[in-house]
């Protein structure tokens, strides 16, 4: 598989060379494959955001290097050279709808491609396509983005990011503040982009259920370093380790751990309710009539 992102011994120090210098990342090495879905978990202050900001050149390493979509970045890289990188990496920050500003939905989505040198017509064509992709109905394209519901405003903002046609989509808690239905729809939309558009997805989240349901890879950060870099199955197989690092379990895994305590045999703890139901169906007495009441 092609490496989409290659990070080698990345160190970052805030306000380096001053009395206020603070080390935020220490020797981070990480590979992310093209087309993969990676979840980054860890507490506030663990270095997640600092790491993310390197991926589109908002920050440059103090030492070490990273290669993102073919662009090599070190402390020496000129700011001008980072432009190319920003074409390839789309960022959805928390509450992206706060960044909407245009008069109409279509214009707002078309802003980025126009800014990157596309003609008005081309940009609006791309914008219309992206609006469909994120599930916005055509009827809203000419209305003001501020008349839409919170969930729809967020879709507009995300369409704006997709309109740059990035290869890598970085999502920083993209469902914060949405209700459960909105959250599910949003996560399913990203899954579709991952499956159909083959976007490489990097998701920063506190929602362990989302990690279990969507990610194929998990990176756990603490104090500016990686403490795990593995699959969800491996990371969630050790509840004690997670507890020690103040991290939660997906609901299914937590539930299965309770069953295991009662003596129900599991070889590995399941991650999703479908997996758990499958396993329970094997273990349960199959004759439907046996159950009373």
């Amino acid at each position: 598989m092609v490496k989409s992102i290659h990070i080698e011994k990345l160190n970052y120090v805030y306000q380096s060379g001053t009395p206020f210098s603070r080390r935020a990342l220490t020797d981070v090495s990480l590979d992310i494959k093209t087309g993969s879905y990676t979840a980054i978990i860890g507490h506030t202050g663990s270095g997640k955001s600092t790491l993310l900001q390197h991926l589109n050149g908002l920050l440059k390493p103090t030492s070490g290097s990273l290669t993102v979509a073919g662009n090599h970045i070190t402390s020496e890289t000129k700011n001008k050279e980072l432009n190319e990188l920003r074409h390839h990496v789309g960022f959805v920050f928390q509450f992206p709808e706060a960044q909407l500003f245009e008069e109409t939905v279509l214009k707002d989505i078309a802003f980025a491609p126009k800014n990157f040198g596309k003609s008005d017509e081309e940009a609006e064509q791309v914008a219309a396509k992206m609006a469909t992709l994120v599930g916005l109905p055509d009827s809203v394209l000419d209305s003001s983005p501020f008349e839409l519901s919170g969930g729809q405003m967020r879709r507009v903002a995300i369409a704006g990011v997709l309109a740059m046609e990035p290869q890598i989509l970085v999502l920083d808690e993209p469902t914060a503040g949405l209700d459960p239905k909105g959250r599910l729809e949003m996560m399913e939309m990203f899954e579709q982009l991952h499956q159909e558009q083959h976007l490489t997805i990097i998701l920063v989240t506190h929602q362990m259920n989302d990690v279990a349901n969507y990610a194929d890879h998990v990176v756990v950060m603490e104090n500016g370093g990686l403490i795990a870099n593995s699959t969800p199955e491996r990371v969630f197989s050790d509840p004690d380790w997670l507890h020690k690092h103040h991290l939660g379990l997906p609901q299914t895994t937590a539930f299965a751990a309770k069953l295991a305590k009662q003596g129900v045999p599991f070889e590995t703890l399941p991650l999703t309710e479908k997996q758990l139901a499958e396993k329970l169906a094997e273990l349960m007495p199959q004759s439907g009539g046996e159950l009373h009441g």
Binding site: G263, E273, E278, M284, G288, L291
Partner: peptide
């Protein structure tokens, strides 16, 4: 979980169960 179990042909009690009682019911049945 009940919904997923029903889909797989397993009958579950019809009354509402919280997590504790669901764990108990499942471990007893198994």
């Amino acid at each position: 979980l009940k919904f997923e179990l029903n889909k797989r042909g397993i009958q579950t009690p019809s009354e509402y169960m919280d997590e504790g009682s669901m764990v108990n019911w499942l471990s007893r049945s198994i």
